[in-house]
């Protein structure tokens, strides 16, 4: 009897857990579906897929491939935002990653793998730097990461001596342009990073600590959690994700462009996280929803491109999306909207 009711309880709790994650995944997915449906009717060949040389081609695959850098950034950004912070420097860190990789490829004889590892480590250090400023020097996150946002591009340019370094390196080219399981390799990188991060937050207590710190830092501190270390680690993870994204971009264009690599992508990734339902005030976070948010942004961009609308129009769409999502999250807005509805009825 008791076991049966326990089971029922467990099933119910599991259902609630799923429903919470689903609730936040739902909105970006619905929006995505709407955009896809629009394309289904109005954009010829949007859903067309074809197999060529062991790789699938088509708009959908293209979206996944192009969204990969922002998806990676949004994974790291989700964790940072969950702790109640924000990281403005990820775009600049991407540029640093590209420069370091280019430097190692052209000036050293390291293997492909050690280049990737070294670059990612350097970006982890950059992230840790942000973390030290936020967690230990207690500088507001926007301000703390602004420093690296400004100086980071300078550092990237310093490394490449201000030039766009182009390189030919077949194994490194695979990182951003290769084919794996008939799909562009960046998709695999995103999938693996997502898998690792999900494992980290679900199979260790890291997820609980991150959410606790973001939701109520004081109470977490009084509960014996090392809140500073949690924040530090979050920014380090953000740096690592930015490093991977930077490598993909550099490998894709076979060059390190310190000026333009990752430009404005910090804003796109913040947008993806917010659209994915993770509140900017921190707390509960949803990695999968952030990925859906990033996909939504890319799908809109691609749609606008294929419809020959100036691509700059996406900027306005993004602005409108930010405001709508934020208003929906704003308690004051809901209160005022409710009052208005009541007054009318």
């Amino acid at each position: 009897m008791k076991a049966a009711s326990d089971n029922a309880l467990q099933r119910e709790s599991k259902a609630r857990r799923h429903s919470e994650a689903w609730h936040h995944l739902k909105w970006p997915l619905i929006a995505l579906a709407v955009v896809l449906l629009f394309n289904f009717f109005f954009t010829p060949l949007f859903f067309h897929l074809e197999m060529k040389d062991g790789r699938i081609y088509g708009s959908l695959i293209d979206i996944l491939n192009r969204a990969a850098p922002v998806m990676l950034l949004s994974l790291g950004m989700t964790i940072v935002i969950a702790t109640g912070g924000v990281d403005l420097s990820v775009g600049a860190v991407m540029a640093i990653a590209g420069s370091i990789a280019a430097l190692l490829i052209t000036k050293s004889s390291y293997s492909f793998l050690s280049i990737v590892i070294l670059t990612v480590c350097a970006c982890a250090v950059a992230g840790t730097w942000n973390g030290v400023l936020v967690a230990y020097a207690q500088v507001q996150p926007i301000v703390a990461t602004l420093i690296l946002m400004v100086a980071g591009r300078g550092i990237a340019q310093l490394l490449t001596n201000g030039q766009i370094i182009t390189f030919e390196n077949p194994s490194f080219a695979f990182f951003g342009g290769g084919t794996f399981l008939a799909l562009p390799f960046p998709i695999t990188i995103v999938a693996v990073t997502f898998a690792i991060l999900s494992t980290l937050v679900n199979r260790t207590a890291a997820g609980l600590f991150i959410e606790a710190v973001g939701d109520n830092e004081k109470a977490s501190n009084y509960s014996g959690i090392n809140t500073r270390l949690v924040k530090l680690a979050a920014y380090t993870l953000g740096g690592i994700c930015a490093g991977l994204a930077g490598l993909i971009v550099a490998s894709d264009i076979k060059a390190a462009d310190a000026n333009n690599a990752g430009l404005y992508l910090e804003l796109d990734s913040i947008l993806a996280v917010v659209v994915g339902g993770t509140a900017l005030t921190g707390g509960r976070f949803f990695l999968l929803s952030s990925l859906a948010g990033a996909l939504l942004i890319q799908t809109i961009t691609t749609t606008i491109l294929t419809r020959a609308i100036p691509v700059e129009f996406t900027l306005i769409v993004k602005a409108v999306v930010i405001i709508i999502v934020c208003l929906l999250q704003s308690e004051e807005f809901r209160k005022k909207a409710l009052q208005l509805v009541r007054r009318k009825s």
């Binding site: 804003l267 913040i270 700059e312 996406t314 900027l315 306005i316 993004k318 602005a319 409108v320 930010i322």
Partner: peptide, 13 residues
């Protein structure tokens, strides 16, 4: 931030 996107987009329009 939204204002930044919006103004830039409007300029390009």
């Amino acid at each position: 931030l939204a204002g930044m996107f919006f103004a830039r987009g409007a300029g390009f329009l």
